[in-house]
């Protein structure tokens, strides 16, 4: 019994020591992202993770003089993987919400974009209020602010939720859903492609309070460092340069 106690105590101390050591050293940061949300994060034909989120994360890492590695992870599993220490920060166009704030901490917002309803051309949808969309089937990616917004603002509607945005798009194109709700810039990117030719933006709604990097609640030092770095890259012009590569207008969140 005594031996067991000693072993347990030693093990606990070891764990505590390694944990506290790890919590202080941010010379390497592992970053989780989805990789299926162009143009913000996606995997290109060379299997490289790219996109606006990634470029911002790289600029933040450069500012912090940290080495960053990227991991692509299913959207639904991003927060659980962060909590399980598979990576240290999420740069995946994750909206800052109260629900998520209960389980993770967010950095300062690094961008803010509108949210849009997209429907088939000639659908006749002009009013995207609950009254205007009455009887329509709506779709969104699951575990997104868009999906919560649909459930809260459009109660009683037939709302379909999909694991990735690609699948929502597919089902709008095939007509299984009448309209989808998505980040406007992501929606516009899809509308430019041939399979997005079916559809158009029919309205915008106010959803969300900006996009931030998520970290574990105990890593407040990392959170503050990232927030500061975001301010810094905005101040030195790096942010605007990246912004200009993707969008003709600023998406900076004030």
């Amino acid at each position: 019994m005594r031996l067991f106690k000693t072993i347990a105590l030693t093990a606990a101390t070891l764990v505590a020591v390694t944990l506290s050591a790890e919590a202080k050293d941010w010379s390497t940061i592992r970053i989780g992202t989805e990789g299926a949300f162009p143009p913000f994060n996606f995997i290109d034909s060379d299997k490289q993770i790219k996109g606006f989120d990634i470029d911002i994360a790289k600029a933040v890492c450069a500012n912090l003089k940290a080495t960053c590695t990227f991991v692509a992870q299913d959207w639904d599993g991003l927060i659980p993987a962060l909590q399980a220490s598979k990576f240290d920060a999420i740069f995946a166009s994750m909206s800052i919400t109260d629900e998520r704030k209960q389980v993770v901490d967010f950095s300062r917002a690094y961008y803010n974009t509108p949210t849009a309803f997209i429907a088939a051309k000639g659908s006749g949808i002009t009013d995207v209020s609950p009254a205007g969309l009455k009887g329509k089937t709506l779709g969104a990616q699951s575990s997104t602010i868009q999906s919560s917004y649909l459930e809260q603002t459009y109660p009683g509607f037939d709302v379909k939720l999909y694991p990735t945005q690609d699948e929502v798009n597919l089902d709008l194109a095939s007509g299984r859903i009448d309209a989808l709700l998505v980040d406007k810039l992501v929606g516009m990117e899809w509308l430019k492609k041939s399979d997005g030719a079916c559809c158009e933006i029919v309205g915008e709604v106010p959803v969300g309070g900006g996009i931030g990097a998520a970290v574990r609640k105990q890593d407040t030092d990392l959170r503050d460092a990232i927030s500061k770095a975001i301010e810094a890259i905005k101040a030195d012009g790096t942010y605007d340069k990246i912004n200009a590569e993707y969008f003709p207008f600023s998406i900076w969140a004030n």
């Binding site: 639904d76 699951s142 939720l161 089902d171």
Partner: peptide, 18 residues
């Protein structure tokens, strides 16, 4: 594929509550 069977509802509940 969007059916709210037992697993579908569970995924929904999890995505809201973590």
């Amino acid at each position: 594929v969007t059916v709210f069977d037992l697993m579908g509802v569970t995924r929904l509940a999890y995505s809201r509550s973590f």
